[in-house]
Measured scan of single mutants.
Amino acid sequence: MATDAALRRLLRLHRTEIAVAVDSAFPLLHALADHDVVPEDKFQETLHLKEKEGCPQAFHALLSWLLTQDSTAILDFWRVLFKDYNLERYGRLQPILDSFPKDVDLSQPRKGRKPPAVPKALVPPPRLPTKRKASEEARAAAPAALTPRGTASPGSQLKAKPPKKPESSAEQQRLPLGNGIQTMSASVQRAVAMSSGDVPGARGAVEGILIQQVFESGGSKKCIQVGGEFYTPSKFEDSGSGKNKARSSSGPKPLVRAKGAQGAAPGGGEARLGQQGSVPAPLALPSDPQLHQKNEDECAVCRDGGELICCDGCPRAFHLACLSPPLREIPSGTWRCSSCLQATVQEVQPRAEEPRPQEPPVETPLPPGLRSAGEEVRGPPGEPLAGMDTTLVYKHLPAPPSAAPLPGLDSSALHPLLCVGPEGQQNLAPGARCGVCGDGTDVLRCTHCAAAFHWRCHFPAGTSRPGTGLRCRSCSGDVTPAPVEGVLAPSPARLAPGPAKDDTASHEPALH
């Protein structure tokens, strides 16, 4: 009773807030009518008042009428009001819900409408889902798969039609296919003929059939049928067999079959498995989609049935006599038709004709302190090069084509190399640097090759510096006499390219 009084008091307290929050009759008014909170006449009256005075006034009048009803109607109103779709449509209802007392429970059932309790003993237990329907569909599909699609060729003596089998029958139906081979029951999904010589313990000319048996419980189990008994694959494991010639990621696949039913060829011909030897223990289905393919039931050349050999690369099948050149017997292992072999060759040939990528240039590290003349020119003028003790990398590039010797140069053309002071002394051009340390401070000019250098860098042994005729380390061993002091540049003949010694390969005349 306390809860009923509290709900009535809360409705009177929030009546105006609810009326202002509800700006549309749908969905709240319609939901109240659906849950029998508002009768039909009051529903029509509220809609009429909404058209006349507006939605807030109409709902305020409806809530005032609701306060005169019993506690069950008020409880049902609060339940409908706080439904998710009403809270989404009328956003101003959320503060009312947040301020609702926590001790007021809106989930209690309506009085007088409590459903009768059902004894637990009368409640049926839930049924577990079964796979009976899938099993029945598999039974119905198996006879259809064994139905012949056409008439065999005159040369083929193997013609068999499976008798119709009602689904209610649980007995196995067997077809006489000759040579002791028996087909599987209607619940078998796949059958492959297997030679009895590969099964340990088999006697006589009995041949087993590799099947997948579907049981009534819905589970499946792969086994071997020899005669009327089934054997699990673990009985046929043979770890010492060295003649297993397995197909790549293979499961067994029928390579020879008669049109209309699988079996042995007439005249004692023995149908073979995809792999010879003992049956392997793992009978998992292969991951290669080509091995799941269903080959055609007629020859791809003459479009006739009979004894066919199936290609492992495509769905086509052929007569042995229709092949070019014809085959006398079934080859062992994987067999592919000429079209598949030709496609494989065409895929391999473009790969062989692809040009080989060019090898990157060989990189040879230079000892610290040495650099090529090109690196000396590329440096920024007026700045010493940083990191001189790091190992430089010199790339061996292809030799350029031989060019004509340089033409003779006048001494005026070499004027930018040297600057003559007032006393006739050779001065260095701006930006000249030593080729060893890279520093341009207090550098000297070689009178023979006009290269800038430090005496301490080229002659670290402490050799005394002569007063005139300074030469760098590369030119100090040259027998050519030094030019007379005061000459602007060496003779043009000295600039012609010539053979250089091994220790002077990195010091070429550089223009500054």
Score class of each variant (00 low, 15 high):
Ala5Asp: 09
Ala5Tyr: 04
Leu10His: 15
Leu11Tyr: 00
Leu13Asp: 00
Thr16Ile: 01
Glu17Ser: 01
Ile18Lys: 03
Val20Ile: 14
Val22Pro: 01
Ser24Glu: 06
Ser24Thr: 01
Pro27Thr: 02
Ala31Ser: 02
Ala31Cys: 01
Leu32Ser: 01
His35Asn: 07
Asp36Lys: 03
Asp36Val: 00
Val37Ala: 01
Pro39Gly: 00
Lys42Phe: 01
Leu49Ser: 00
Glu51Leu: 03
Lys52Thr: 13
Lys52Cys: 00
Gly54Pro: 01
Cys55Arg: 03
Gln57Pro: 00
Gln57His: 01
Ala58Phe: 02
His60Met: 04
Leu63Ser: 00
Leu66Asp: 01
Leu67Thr: 00
Thr68Ala: 03
Ser71Arg: 03
Ile74Leu: 01
Ile74Val: 04
Ile74Cys: 03
Leu75Glu: 00
Leu75Lys: 06
Trp78Pro: 05
Asp84Trp: 15
Leu87Gln: 04
Glu88Arg: 15
Tyr90Val: 02
Tyr90Asp: 02
Gly91His: 00
Leu93Ala: 02
Ile96Lys: 03
Leu97Arg: 07
Leu97Ile: 00
Ser99Val: 07
Ser99His: 05
Ser107Trp: 15
Ser107Asn: 01
Gln108His: 01
Pro109Ala: 09
Lys111Ser: 12
Pro116Glu: 08
Ala117Ile: 07
Pro119Ile: 15
Pro125Glu: 08
Pro126Asp: 07
Arg127Met: 11
Lys131Leu: 01
Lys131Asp: 01
Arg132Pro: 00
Glu137Tyr: 15
Ala141Asp: 13
Ala141Arg: 10
Ala144Cys: 10
Thr147Arg: 10
Pro148Cys: 14
Gly150Thr: 06
Ser153Gly: 13
Lys159Gln: 01
Lys165Tyr: 08
Ser168Ala: 08
Ala170Ser: 07
Ala170Cys: 13
Gln172Arg: 15
Gln173Asn: 15
Arg174Trp: 15
Leu177Ile: 07
Ile181Lys: 02
Thr183His: 06
Thr183Ser: 09
Ser187Val: 04
Gln189Asn: 08
Ala193Lys: 08
Ala193Asn: 12
Ala202Phe: 04
Ala202Arg: 11
Arg203Lys: 03
Gly208Leu: 03
Ile209Phe: 08
Phe215Ser: 04
Gly218Pro: 06
Gly219Pro: 05
Gly219His: 07
Lys221Asp: 06
Lys221Asn: 10
Lys222Pro: 08
Lys222Trp: 01
Lys222Tyr: 00
Lys222Val: 02
Val226Tyr: 10
Gly227Asn: 05
Gly227Phe: 01
Gly228Pro: 08
Ser234Glu: 05
Lys235Gln: 10
Ser241Tyr: 12
Lys245Thr: 01
Ala246Trp: 15
Ala246His: 14
Arg247Gln: 06
Pro252Asp: 08
Leu255His: 13
Lys259Cys: 14
Lys259Tyr: 14
Gln262Glu: 14
Gly263Gln: 00
Gly268Tyr: 03
Glu270Arg: 06
Ala271Phe: 08
Ala271Pro: 10
Leu273Gln: 15
